[in-house]
Design a protein around this nucleic acid. Structure first.
Length: 501
RNA sequence: GGCGCCGUACCCAAGUGGUAAGGGAGCAGUCUGCAAAACUGCGAUGCAGCGGUUCGAACCCGCUCGGCGCCUCCA
């Protein structure tokens, strides 16, 4: 039985979909005015895994993830660069797909854009005005929070509390400081659509109500996003949507924690962020390996908690994955002894169950990874007793199958050598001022003068010959020479060797 | 001022009432010509602190301390 922590109730609850065996979920994507950083990656990945797990549990999942492509920041960026808003949004939507694709994050079932739903947005706004929940001022339309008694239910805030701490808002046309824009009149040069209130554009929040209702219906199962969206974004979405329909909106609200650097939230304003693409560009590992290392790292903490991003954490993730791929390498070899074969099925059955139990418990990916680590250890032991070629293939496939939910263990070309991590996140000591981030310390990509497989095999044969003649000096010389080029040799009990790079 | 998250070993990190998973690093051992990998063993009498509830608390309640976030755009 799957349990999910629901922000709305503050409790872990059994998951019961509205319609049997189907899940409709909506996740707030990004406002497309810049490249995504690791924080965005975490959010996208968490919901990608959630979706994969639901599918693997037998649910038919309709997964909608939006792009907010009309917004103040986009307009600002377009003006700065002297291009159209469309050019800005097209560029960063493409970048989003490229970056998330490298992390193995699947495209959603639907990826709607706000600008494609203007008619829906206008219609929702009209209905809110007609119901007396919104009012018009000089071509702007505001939602009136005091008309919605349940306002604050999600974020556990009371209107009075908000009022006390709210920033002084000089917009005196609003009836309440927390009233928010559904529709904004456009200034010249801004994107604009005709509406009953004049030429204008949507406010922030309403586009998500419009898109989720359009693609999933008025009530659906799961709504998610980063913690920072709880207030005001999701609170406002609920107010608008429930205000219009009079029905329940989303039943389960799921929010992921932040990625931090030196205990601080990764954000543009602090300048302590790393974009996904700069990490891939600077990494010395091939793309799929860098992607898997990032995935392992991002999933090694429960989605709800904070996650400290650091060069050391990535190094640990890489080392942990090396252990798995070391095993997979051995599973790729042939085997004659079979005394371990009989236990294999049982071990995988037990691990599958534990894996499912972990994921059922609010998508506990660190627990699930621990189960896989236990499996790695078990299979290593069985390998010691001897596994047939067929059993080895079966084992490798089981790992691939289980790992697929987390997007791990799919590679056939693992790189074992540990390239330097292309940045550092440690603080600078001293200087009397605030601790500062060390600027990314980029390493130049090493020259790709790698030996071919054939050349390596030839050297290995030469080394084997030297070993047979007890010429260990020569054998070690060859190993050392290969090591300097990132080739690691492991001698097997039968005297032959395997190698990896 | 209000609301919320977090504080578990050297580092990362599960565990939300029944007696501290897992990984990384380290140390020791087995194997090995050596190395690597693997395996075995070692590693918190204690979960920020102090009280309380309970037969029993890392888990529940209260207070305190520390870190962070939201209340303005934010994944």
């Amino acid at each position: 039985m799957l349990k999910i922590y629901n922000t709305l109730t503050g409790k872990k609850e059994p998951f019961e979909p509205i319609a049997p065996k189907t899940v409709r979920m909506y996740v707030c994507g990004v406002t497309v005015y810049d490249y995504c950083h690791i924080g965005h990656a975490r959010s996208a990945l968490v919901f990608d895994v959630l979706r994969r797990y639901l599918e693997c549990s037998g649910y038919a999942v309709t997964f909608v993830k939006n792009f907010t492509d009309v917004d103040d920041k986009i307009i600002k960026r377009a003006h700065e660069q002297g291009v159209s808003c469309d050019a800005v949004t097209a560029k960063y939507i493409q970048a989003y797909h490229e970056d998330m694709g490298k992390l193995g994050i699947r495209a959603a079932t639907e990826e709607p854009k706000a600008t494609e739903h203007i008619a829906d947005i206008i219609q929702l706004t009209e209905r809110l005005v007609a119901k007396g929940l919104a009012y018009v001022v000089d071509g702007d339309v505001y939602f009136e929070v005091s008309k919605y008694p349940e306002y604050g239910r999600l974020s556990k805030r009371r209107l009075e509390d908000l009022q006390a701490g709210a920033r002084v808002d000089v917009d005196e046309r609003k009836r309440h400081a927390m009233d928010f824009a559904l529709w904004k009149s456009s200034k010249p040069g801004e994107p604009a659509w005709e509406s009953p209130w004049g030429s204008g554009r949507p406010g922030w929040h309403i586009e998500c109500s419009a898109m989720s209702i359009r693609h999933l219906g008025e009530t659906f199962d799961i709504h998610g996003g980063g913690m920072d969206l709880i207030f005001p974004h999701h609170e406002n979405e609920i107010a608008q949507s429930c205000g219009v329909t009079g029905k329940e909106f989303a039943r389960y609200w799921i929010h992921n924690g932040f990625v931090q650097i030196n205990k601080e939230k990764m954000s543009k304003s602090l300048g302590n962020f790393f974009t996904i693409r700069e990490i891939f560009e600077k990494s010395e590992w091939p793309e799929d390996i860098t992607g898997e290392v990032l995935r392992y790292f991002l999933l090694s903490t429960h989605y709800h908690g904070p996650l400290e991003f650091s060069d050391q954490a990535l190094r640990e993730a890489k080392n942990a994955l090396n252990g798995f791929y070391d095993l997979f390498k051995r599973l790729g070899e042939t085997g004659e002894k079979v005394s371990g074969d009989e236990d294999l099925g049982l071990v995988f059955e037990r691990c599958s169950e534990m894996f499912r139990a972990a994921m059922d418990d609010d998508f506990n990916t660190p627990m699930a990874i621990a189960v896989l680590q236990g499996l790695r250890s078990d299979v290593n032991k069985m390998l010691g007793y001897g596994l047939s070629t067929e059993a080895r293939e079966k084992a490798r496939n089981e790992f691939r199958l289980l790992g697929n939910v987390l997007g791990l263990f799919q590679s056939n070309q693992w790189k074992f050598a540990n390239a330097p991590i292309p940045f550092r996140t440690t603080r600078l000591e001293g200087m009397g001022s605030e601790p500062a981030l060390v600027q990314p310390q980029f390493f130049s990509k090493s020259q790709n003068n790698n030996l071919s497989d054939g050349q390596i095999e030839q050297l290995l044969a030469e080394r084997l010959d030297a070993k047979r003649k007890k010429d260990f000096a020569r054998a070690d010389e060859i190993r050392k020479s290969l090591a300097s080029q990132g080739i690691i040799i492991e001698d097997k009990p039968d005297g032959t060797s395997r190698w990896k790079r």
